[in-house]
Simulated scan of single mutants.
Amino acid sequence: MTNSPVGGTPALIVIDAQQGSSDRSDQMHSGSGSVPGGREAILERINEVVSHARAADVPIVWGKELHRPDFADYGAEFESSEPEHGLYGTAAEHLDDRLAVDEDDMEPAEYVIAKRRYNFFHRTDLEHLLATYNVDTVVLVGFMTNICVHYTAHGAHERDYAFRVVEEGTGAPSDERHELGLRCIRYLQPRGVRSLEAVTESFDAYEGNSVVQRVKETGRVYPDTGPVTPGSET
């Protein structure tokens, strides 16, 4: 482990930055954070982190919490205090259109994953991607600080990853919930909450992930694939 604001071999994870109604005032609105300006300002910070991560050849994973419209996969979220959310067939099926990403034409070494639970690691292929890129640290931005960001940080912690939550790049339904989320996250890993400036400067100094560079150059993790023939191991 390292004290670096982005760890040794980082990946950037953007959590649940999905479309929704801009006039919602309920607890899913997630317009409170560590910067003034509401959700718009938080999304601007997320775009800034994404830009530095791309330039640094860091793998990026975009996550969405999505559920079937009949709620067959909703599980214990029926017991939660949240209104219904993240349903296929609604605006939530798409990432916020203010984000610097085109879901129909993804950049190399960037991926979209749908999840069913708060924890991004739960029954998704996230760990397969992280293993491919030899990741030891996940840098987290997105929504909500006190729920999905917190639970994903917890999931990373349980799986022996370091995590770094970008404080200005996360949001919650209220200032109180945002701060409570950050407090719980810091309890798990005291180095786990970092400033936007520290993270972007560290990305700028990062030498880049060699697998990402290969994907950008060739379009594939391994340019040569196919059956292994006798003697090819030498």
Rank of each mutant, 00 (worst) to 15 (best):
D73H: 00
I46P: 04
L196S: 04
V149S: 11
Q27E: 05
E79K: 11
W62K: 02
A109T: 02
L126S: 01
L130C: 00
L188Q: 10
E107N: 09
A172S: 15
I42W: 12
A114F: 10
H52S: 15
V35Y: 05
D57T: 00
Q213V: 05
G171R: 04
G181R: 04
G208Q: 13
G226Q: 04
G226M: 00
T9V: 15
C184G: 08
G208A: 11
R68V: 06
T152A: 02
G20Q: 14
V49C: 03
L129M: 04
M1D: 12
P59A: 00
E127Y: 02
T137N: 04
T229P: 01
S210C: 09
A156Q: 03
T234S: 03
D73R: 06
R117H: 15
N146V: 03
D26T: 05
A156S: 07
T145V: 01
P69I: 03
S51R: 15
M106L: 15
S81T: 12
P59D: 00
V49H: 07
F163T: 02
N146K: 03
E40P: 12
V101C: 08
D125F: 07
V149P: 11
V112F: 11
V61D: 04
T170Y: 07
V215D: 02
Y74C: 09
D23F: 05
E179R: 07
Y133A: 09
E158K: 12
E217A: 15
R98I: 05
V14I: 15
P69K: 08
R214I: 08
F163D: 02
Q27S: 06
G33F: 04
A55M: 09
Q189N: 11
N47I: 04
Y222N: 10
E179M: 00
I185A: 03
V112H: 10
L126W: 06
I46F: 03
D175G: 03
